[in-house]
Design a protein around this nucleic acid. Structure first.
Lengths: 201, 201
DNA sequence: CGCGGGTTTGATGATGCTCAAGCCCGGTGG
DNA sequence: CCACCGGGCTTGAGCATCATCAAACCCGCG
């Protein structure tokens, strides 16, 4: 169960984990299974745990006054799920997070997370790199949202996130890209016509 | 010159700086003055330095095929400027960064930055917290872009970033919010009418 | 005074949204 | 086996929002 997170850690840090480190991590990360559609976090609750995804897929979203869901974050195995804002500040979350597939998680609390940062150098390094990557990713997405049309945003998404594109249905991708499912449908049709390359299903 | 960054550091870290730390920082952060409109980074160049803003204001943007500027990041004193993607990966930047006011910076190179992270605990802590804050901020902005209308985005921006709103002209704010200056002008007019509260200038 | 940068306003058009209907397909139960 | 159902995708018609283009205005500054 914990093997994948060890592998993940060693893949993104230079210093390797000692047996003691692994023991510590086995004791702090609690495993949890979630069924498809099961809530991990609901709007108004404080995000007490952050989750490493061992297997499956999760979605993070808000619901607006019209009841429409807007997906701010999608994640699959070897990524993380949780609301960082609520997790860091202990304030009620404005997001919902649920499983989109049957999912296996490894949970950690805020205090355990902070302890781990101090006690395992590899973890600190991983977190720093992860934060860097996440910020760069968010910045790219922001740039796309303020400067590109729906069509170009989708093209970019498709080419740089093929896995997400495969794992999540179109209406979720659409929302993630800031358009409706109807618009994305038309956009894809246009794109297909233009390059006469049917999208691989 | 370096005093402000010491103050900044101590404001966001628990461990305090030793005299030796400060000496080290004085030697690694190089100060630089920039005139309004002077480039700090141009598209295609690698971002060799990250900059702490002691005084002034900077803007980071892309220029699309039609020659329109899209502002992805605005920053003022006590914030940072630089393209993290290029800085971290040594790849050519897709952004331009320039000074919007006469500005004083403290520059640091990537290797010096990584060294500092290892040698001063307060710096590591600051970076971690900064990354957390930046990510949360980016996430909020993403959420606003995919789920709110131009009017609501502006209202949110105005209330949570009054300083930016004061320091940057409207057409820059507009671009930052993902709309044209023309649209923002109309949106503000509507908002004024609605609340019969003239925006403080 | 005239210039440049920024903002406002109007007219027009494109892009993307809403609503509604129909289709496709996999799963369930008679 | 087939009928039905639900979720997801597509398509069309009409509409709202926002972009574009162009003109005018405002104001600080040389």
């Amino acid at each position: 169960m914990h093997e994948l997170i060890f592998k993940y850690l060693s893949s993104c840090s230079t210093s390797s984990l000692t047996e003691k480190d692994m023991e510590l991590m086995r004791n702090t990360f609690v495993s949890k299974k979630m069924r498809k559609r099961q809530y991990f976090l609901q709007e108004g609750d404080v995000c007490k745990h952050f989750a490493f995804i061992v297997k499956g897929a999760m979605r993070q979203y808000t619901v607006d006054d019209k009841g429409i869901e807007h997906f701010v974050q999608l994640s699959i195995e070897n990524y993380w799920a949780g609301d960082r804002e609520s997790f860091a500040t202990f304030t009620p979350s404005i997001y919902n997070i649920d499983a989109w597939e049957d999912t296996e998680l490894l949970l950690i609390t805020r205090t355990d997370f902070l302890n781990l940062l101090d006690s395992i150098p590899g973890v600190a390094e991983m977190v720093r790199k992860l934060d860097e990557k996440d910020f760069i990713f968010a910045q790219r997405r922001l740039k796309a949202l303020i400067s590109l049309t729906a069509e170009k945003r989708f093209a970019e998404f498709e080419s740089s996130n093929p896995e997400f594109n495969r794992r999540f249905p179109q209406h979720i991708i659409a929302s993630y890209l800031g358009v409706t499912n109807v618009t994305l449908s038309r956009v894809r049709k246009q794109a297909m016509k233009k390059y006469s390359l049917p999208v691989i299903s």
